[in-house]
Simulated assay, not measured.
Amino acid sequence: MSHGFGRTRWRRFAMVLLPSVGVCTALGIAMAQGALAASFLISGQRFQVTADKLTVRGLSIYPMVDVSKKHELVPVLVTGFRHAEISGLCQAAELDLPVVGTHTLTLTGSDERPTEATNMFLDTTFEAAGQANFRNIDIGIAQGEITKGPVDPGDRSSRFFDPSGFGQQASSATLTDVSVTSVALSAATFDVPGLRVRFDRGHRDCP
């Protein structure tokens, strides 16, 4: 299934896979904002995640619907990684606080050592990458047949998970200049060397 696709489809697939990058910093902000994971009620707050480079082993991608605390349905693309290394990690969330107004929570990792995570799941609404390279890709595999990457156990039991629905997977992937908009992130392990947290007044984007 990994052959016979035109350039346009390859670009689209690349954008689907890049979400993995957000997994790193997204975790900290998701927790801070009450966005838990695909299997839990989310806050609905969107946050930005960027990375200079994302290297993944065991990639899975499938559509899902998250549910907010206000019972709103949020269509997302779930990207799972058995293992991920993220260089140049940054995450930014804009928060509207009572009385004091808009502030931005920014998390960054070390410039010298990559962030590492295992069994990560990132729920995204937008993804982009400057370059994406994949190995052993399957596009159009049934969601219930995904084996190269992880599938959240909570998603498998969700009424929104279709075992016969469209899915994608790859044995590995490398993406550069990654930018993601996400609503939730979870990981079995999440190691961030040189973690730095800032809370500034006004709107701030990741560099």
Rank of each mutant, 00 (worst) to 15 (best):
residue 56 V to N: 06
residue 62 Y to M: 11
residue 66 D to N: 15
residue 57 R to E: 15
residue 72 E to L: 12
residue 63 P to S: 06
residue 80 G to S: 06
residue 78 V to D: 02
residue 45 Q to W: 00
residue 58 G to L: 08
residue 49 V to R: 00
residue 69 K to R: 15
residue 50 T to K: 07
residue 59 L to H: 10
residue 48 Q to T: 06
residue 50 T to W: 00
residue 75 P to G: 10
residue 54 L to F: 15
residue 42 I to T: 09
residue 66 D to S: 14
residue 44 G to K: 01
residue 42 I to V: 13
residue 69 K to I: 14
residue 47 F to H: 10
residue 62 Y to N: 07
residue 49 V to Y: 02
residue 70 K to M: 11
residue 41 L to I: 00
residue 63 P to Y: 10
residue 67 V to L: 11
residue 44 G to P: 00
residue 70 K to T: 14
residue 43 S to P: 01
residue 80 G to L: 05
residue 50 T to L: 02
residue 66 D to M: 15
residue 75 P to K: 11
residue 60 S to C: 05
residue 51 A to T: 03
residue 55 T to K: 11
residue 74 V to E: 08
residue 55 T to F: 05
residue 46 R to F: 10
residue 70 K to Q: 15
residue 78 V to E: 07
residue 46 R to M: 10
residue 49 V to W: 01
residue 66 D to Q: 15
residue 41 L to H: 03
residue 51 A to E: 09
residue 70 K to F: 07
residue 77 L to K: 10
residue 71 H to K: 15
residue 56 V to E: 13
residue 75 P to T: 08
residue 56 V to G: 01
residue 50 T to Y: 00
residue 50 T to F: 01
residue 68 S to G: 10
residue 41 L to S: 01
residue 55 T to E: 15
residue 47 F to A: 08
residue 70 K to G: 05
residue 42 I to M: 00
residue 60 S to G: 13
residue 73 L to W: 10
residue 52 D to F: 02
residue 43 S to K: 03
residue 78 V to A: 11
residue 47 F to Q: 09
residue 69 K to G: 05
residue 44 G to A: 03
residue 55 T to Q: 14
residue 41 L to Q: 07
residue 75 P to R: 09
residue 44 G to M: 01
residue 79 T to P: 04
residue 46 R to A: 09
residue 71 H to N: 14
residue 60 S to I: 08
residue 74 V to T: 11
residue 73 L to S: 09
residue 46 R to L: 08
residue 77 L to T: 14
residue 53 K to A: 12
residue 73 L to I: 06
residue 63 P to V: 04
residue 76 V to I: 10
residue 73 L to T: 10
residue 69 K to S: 12
residue 75 P to L: 09
residue 74 V to D: 03
residue 46 R to C: 04
residue 79 T to H: 06
residue 66 D to H: 12
residue 68 S to K: 04
residue 58 G to N: 09
residue 76 V to Y: 03
residue 50 T to P: 04
residue 53 K to D: 01
residue 46 R to D: 04
residue 41 L to G: 00
residue 64 M to I: 08
residue 49 V to S: 07
residue 49 V to K: 02
residue 76 V to T: 12
residue 64 M to H: 15
residue 41 L to T: 00
residue 45 Q to N: 05
